[in-house]
Design a protein around this nucleic acid. Sequence first.
DNA 1: ACAAAATTAGGACAATCATCCTAGATTCGT
DNA 2: ACGAATCTAGGATGATTGTCCTAATTTTGT
Lengths: 193, 193
Amino acid sequence: MARHGDTRQKIVEAADTLFYEQGVGASSFADIAGAVGLSRGNFYHHFQSKDAILEAVIERRLTRTREMLAQWQRDGGTPRDRIVSFVQMLIANRAKIMAFGCPVGTLSTELAKLDHIAAPRAAEVFTLFLDWLEAQFQAAGFVPDRARALAHHAMMLAQGIATLAAAFKDETQLRQDVDDFTGWLDETLSSKG
Amino acid sequence: MARHGDTRQKIVEAADTLFYEQGVGASSFADIAGAVGLSRGNFYHHFQSKDAILEAVIERRLTRTREMLAQWQRDGGTPRDRIVSFVQMLIANRAKIMAFGCPVGTLSTELAKLDHIAAPRAAEVFTLFLDWLEAQFQAAGFVPDRARALAHHAMMLAQGIATLAAAFKDETQLRQDVDDFTGWLDETLSSKG
DNA sequence: ACAAAATTAGGACAATCATCCTAGATTCGT
DNA sequence: ACGAATCTAGGATGATTGTCCTAATTTTGT
């Protein structure tokens, strides 16, 4: 049993959750240690600094996002179905979205405010989604430029939905917004396909 | 000269800026004191706690938003012009938007994550914009329910634009997004007359 | 089974945090 | 002009922060 990697992974998982639910700035070493069940001083065997943990959390999110998108690709279905599964994340995770917002958008915004060195890396999670969405719209028959613009628009809508869901915590509205997104998607696709 | 109110207002202004640019959690008393040019210990004559400053900052934002919306109303023009001036805020404040995101959305999200007692109050700034936007769409001839939905959609778009602008800091894209917003607005309005 | 390496707990560290207190300075009502 | 109220600076407080060190324990390679 690889104890090292095991503990390290537990730390990253706990930090990931805390960074999402409280924000990076509000999550201390003591918080993470408490969540994992380790002593604070022991952390420096696994990570040299808090920024190193943040970096690992971002890498984890990048990897998991890539895996999720690859899985959606393997799941088959039409490009339309895949884009719907993208926006359906907001419904599946509605409790967390309404409590803490979108994990991608809120981390990106927090790091942008702090002018943190990892901010561009965190924004790459957005890029993964954008590239994937662009591929879906291209598969649906749109030329690259138009597919890129539609991917950006879809991402914008998702971020707007999540931000307002966190502000008002209105599940009915959230579901309506996702329905409207799907409506926009079908209109857009039918105009081309 | 009302010195008391004067210093108090200076504190609130400095705190407002810092809360926006760094986040509430990352802004300390020392930061605010430094920005105003006062000593830290002196603060408690004006505010009993950091939460009291936050409360005053939110009140200030509510008041200023109300004033701005009332001014736009007085400025005349069509409902379409007024809604355009709403989204044009993203262009006018583009440097700050790309650096720190939307002040309304980011404060709301940060307080939501902390489950802060002032979170609902901060969300009321959203409500001011939503009510005002709803009034514009009603003035443009939409029935109340439809006007409310369009106001919500406009707010969603603005939040999505600001979030992606902060993540990617792409001014060209930001301007394109605002143009697209205006295009959507004109399409929507022309469909109703 | 034993030496080397990895992992742990716990405490020390200086810095910073929000908060509070005291004592001097300034302003104001009269 | 004088007493009262207000405002100010600076330091003290205890808690918490990120970081680091040391000494013990556990695991691993052989």
